[in-house]
């Protein structure tokens, strides 16, 4: 289990949060209840299973939606 903190470009519309949350939720290996989208800080915090998923795949899911990923950090949870 690993914990990722992904910094995004500044989020503007709150429906972005919904979109990002759903998109990340649909990935295999995500701890569903751990997803936290911080609107004002424009960050995504999520725990995931590192056997099934890499942080790169999470980033890609978010970028496909059209939100730029600025940086990300991964720590053992």
């Amino acid at each position: 289990m690993q914990k990722a903190v992904i910094q995004l470009e500044p989020l503007v519309c709150p429906s972005c949060m919904q979109k990002i949350e759903h998109a990340v939720k649909l990935l295999n290996g995500i701890r569903q209840d751990s997803i936290k989208i911080l609107f004002n800080a424009s960050k995504v915090r999520v725990n995931f299973d590192s056997d099934k998923l890499t942080v790169g795949e999470i980033e890609k899911a978010i970028e496909t939606l059209g939100y730029e990923v600025i940086s990300s950090k991964v720590k053992p949870a």
Partner: peptide, 14 residues
């Protein structure tokens, strides 16, 4: 494009 992305992840957005 944003609408399409939203629908793909099952969100009805603005």
């Amino acid at each position: 494009i944003q609408a399409y992305q939203a629908l793909k992840v099952k969100v009805v957005s603005i």
